[in-house]
Design a protein around this nucleic acid. Structure first.
Length: 172
DNA sequence: TCGACGATTGCC
DNA sequence: GCAATCGTCGAG
């Protein structure tokens, strides 16, 4: 069953760990469909979070994070990778969760490549998209109790206070 | 317009 | 250890 705004409309610190074990579904134009089980996420929360892109304020790139939860936030980095994020929260407070790893493919850059992401995915609604969404996992037994939290990766520029926050969630 | 830099990856 | 590679954003 597809996850919609009820799920993503909550605070990112609730949504990010609960995404572990959920299923990422990508349907391509040729009809092929692939499913990845999410096993690593990171939370980015608010303008005060110096690791969050929204710490620079509202720009064309960060604008979608200020909207309601349940939208796709993609951005291009290092000249070659599309990073997949979902907006969270009720709106007017910029938040997003980065999909950092799946059971099948590890690394956010490699996931973006496998999903064939590009700028046209920016702002797409997960509750209505015909090509990318998230589903409950009917078979997984991953429970919140088995999820561990660690500091986020690659954000040392944000300073110790934010870099040390345990906002990276993964299944052991 | 110009230049610095990045929520990464893979090869040296 | 470091190059690849380009969109984004603030400064000029």
């Amino acid at each position: 069953m597809r996850l919609t705004n009820d799920f993503f409309g909550r605070d990112v610190l609730e949504v990010a760990p609960e995404l572990i074990g959920k299923v990422l579904v990508r349907k391509f134009e040729n009809g092929n469909t692939i499913r990845f089980t999410i096993n690593e996420t990171e939370a980015y929360r608010g303008e005060e979070d110096l690791a969050c892109h929204a710490s620079k304020g509202r720009t064309p790139r960060t604008e979608v994070m200020y909207r309601q939860g349940g939208l796709i936030y993609v951005y291009f980095i290092y000249g070659m990778y599309w990073m997949l994020n979902f907006t969270t929260g009720p709106g007017n407070h910029p938040q997003a969760v980065l999909i950092r790893g799946t059971k099948e493919i590890n690394g956010p850059g490699r996931i973006g490549r496998a999903l064939g992401l590009d700028k046209t995915f920016y702002g797409e609604d997960l509750s209505t998209s015909l090509r990318l969404w998230v589903e409950e996992n009917s078979t997984s037994a991953t429970s919140e109790h088995t999820i561990i939290a660690k500091p986020r990766i690659g954000i040392n520029y944000a300073g110790n206070f934010w870099a040390k926050k345990p906002w990276r969630f993964l299944a052991p």
